[in-house]
Every structure is written in C-alpha cells, then in structure tokens.
C-alpha cells in the first residue's frame, strides 16, 4: 500500500501555496506524536473516550494528507475505542510505525 496517495496530496497542495503546505505538514508532524502519546496513556488509564478521540484526530489528519494506510489503521483503532474495546494488541505500535514512514515521506514532499 502506498504511504502517501499523491493525488490527494497534490489536490491539497494545489488548493494553497507552498509555504502553507509546509506549515500544515509541520503542524501535523507536531500533533500526531502528541495524539499517539495520548493513545498510549489512555490505554493505561483505560479511558476509551480519550483513546477514541485521539485516534479520530490521527485518522482525520492522515486522510487530509493522503496517508491512506495510516488513516485506515487509525480508523480501526477509533472503532475499537468507540466499542469500548481497548484490547488493541500491537495495533497501536503498527500505527506508530506507519506514522514514522508518513513522516519521512512528508518531509521529502515539503
């Protein structure tokens, strides 16, 4: 699966200017690790609501940049959280790894 869907990314890029795209990418790269941290903490605290909301944010932003795989992984975790199922196994770790790949690619695209 592609890390960044280039069509989605280009649509976003064309709708604005280069400087703003950089700002957006920076905002995402700052925000996503915070959300992942929040998800880890909420797993420990068994706070499904907080977990769901953080996953929701990652999903939404990943989709914005065309990071399809990351978005799908986050969506899966979001649904689990919504069903109060926090038995996520290694899914959060997989999502975090996916984010690292997205991060590298976005840094190249900046």
């Amino acid at each position: 699966m592609t890390i960044i869907d280039i069509n989605t990314f280009n649509t976003l890029k064309e709708s604005t200017d280069a400087e703003f795209i950089q700002e957006l990418i920076n905002a995402f790269l700052e925000d996503a690790p915070l959300q992942i941290q929040r998800m880890k903490e909420s797993l420990q605290k068994k706070d499904a609501e907080l977990f769901t909301r953080a996953a929701h944010t990652v999903k939404s932003n990943a989709a914005t940049f065309g990071a399809t795989e990351l978005a799908n992984l986050a969506r899966e975790l979001e649904s689990m959280g919504r069903e109060n199922n926090l038995e996520v196994g290694n899914k959060l770790q997989v999502m975090e790894e996916a984010f690292e790949q997205v991060k590298n690619q976005l840094n190249e695209l900046k």
Partner: peptide, 12 residues
C-alpha cells in the same frame, strides 16, 4: 477541535 482542519478551512 482539530488544528489542521481549522488551518485548512480558515485558509481556504
């Protein structure tokens, strides 16, 4: 509540 969404919507 999502900063990125606010940024994109505002800018557009």
């Amino acid at each position: 509540d999502n900063k990125i969404n606010r940024m994109i919507l505002s800018r557009t």
